[in-house]
Amino acid sequence: MKIVIPVDNNSMETNVCISFGRAPYFLIYDTKTEENSFMDNSAASSQGGAGIKAAQSIVDSRAEAILTPRCGDNAAEVIKAAGIKLYKTVNDSIQDNIKAFKEGKLNLLDDIHPGLHQHGGK
């Protein structure tokens, strides 16, 4: 199963990024083959709607689950529409979270935050 985690850097030594839409990279990890790859988040620098754009790229990567500390409402709508599950990370360690996910110990993310959007117009 392909899972995605927003991360601070493009190496397995990095940490979980506190932001979803503005994370610089996404780790794409295959729980079966244990293969990993990193995807640049082109949305990180966009003026507004970063979460929507980031979510779109993740959907396109055919991930089946996202592990993230938080997620905005617009991004969550895209992710939900695509049928991808959102899980809440337990700490900032990639390894811990992958392990917890494999063991089925992660909870679904339920605190979807509104606002926080950086609209160009305001």
Partner: peptide, 19 residues
């Protein structure tokens, strides 16, 4: 869309009116 108000998911275009 430079405001990222659009997404294309499961053969459907989603418009984020507020964005």
């Amino acid at each position: 869309c430079k405001f990222n108000a659009l997404a294309y998911i499961k053969d459907k275009l989603i418009v984020f009116n507020e964005v």
